[in-house]
Amino acid sequence: MSDDVLAQATIWKNAGKRVALATVVTTWGSSPRPVGSQLAIDESGAFVGSVSGGCIEGAVVQEAIEAMKDGKPRLLDFGVTNEQAWEVGLACGGKVQVFVERLE
């Protein structure tokens, strides 16, 4: 597996798999990964890259698999305020917004 997120997304797509990309688009406070950090996910839930220190990847992968099915882009908010809604959050107390989209 390539550790270059976009290269791995390309490999999966070329292999006929459904693929989604997740990108950190906004951060507030002490977020673990900067804006622009990315995760590529395939239809089996395999992923490369990171959008946090591992705190929210599981939830992002689930949303990515939904986005692969319905093709709708999603803007997800993670942080203290959404902890109850998502049942995941950032231990560091920061907030991140993650854009999830299907690779068409």
Binding site: L6, T10, F99, E101, L103, E104
Partner: peptide
């Protein structure tokens, strides 16, 4: 993202050319 856009970004990165992806 369209596959063609991804392919172009990868081509630009390989050519060491700066590119900005603008997404609504």
């Amino acid at each position: 993202m369209k596959s063609a856009t991804l392919a172009q970004i990868q081509a630009d990165r390989a050519a060491k050319r700066a590119v900005v992806l603008a997404t609504n």
